[in-house]
Design a protein around this nucleic acid. Sequence first.
DNA 1: TAGGCCATCTGGTCCT
DNA 2: AGGACCAGATGGCCTA
Length: 217
Amino acid sequence: MAPHPLGTATCQVTSETQQPFAAGASDHPALGARSAPPSPTGRPRDCAEAEEGGCRGAPRKLRARRGGRHRPKSELALSKQRRSRRKKANDRERNRMHNLNSALDALRGVLPTFPDDAKLTKIETLRFAHNYIWALTQALRIADHSFYGPEVPVPPRGGALGSFEGGSLGDWGSLYSPVSHAGSLSPTTSLEECPGRQVPSPPACLLPGALAFSDFL
DNA sequence: TAGGCCATCTGGTCCT
DNA sequence: AGGACCAGATGGCCTA
């Protein structure tokens, strides 16, 4: 399997490329619709009062309504019900993960990978997509600047890349976005370490001269 | 055989 | 009550 020469790789144009990814029926209407993102430490799992209604508590009306309607169930019936619920929950969870994987596949579909049968792992897909978008944004910026003026652009704080707070955007040598740098997963633990894999390449004309495409990951 | 990746199950939490 | 989301646990498969 010969790796694509740098700069000759073209984005795979598939049916997925032409259609925006369709959110599944079970998806949230909007990304992040689940109110606020979890706190840095994750959602409060130690809220023991939740059951008593301490944290959020069931509405009193609801509580008052409970009771009388339900007859006590036998252990067997309860066990049966629990198993049934668990099974349904497992099915839903499986479905949810399948949807998630479908979304990842769709993402892989619009990323330039090669050889074609090389499937990026989940984490590789996310990292590459992130860095690829970042690099394309930089390329657009360069194109923009070269159109209006010859000077070498110094990415300003705050523009299209403003979301990458804290990153040294003016440093072309540091292609990784801060997000990629963050955490224990170093960007260097990427495709470069996978002998069988070749790093996909965006059109060479989009790459700033000093950049090696392997920097994407 | 160890380590990486993945699918699945499971229980907890939050939301509707 | 039930669904969605999440993270931990577990076991299977594959590769170096």
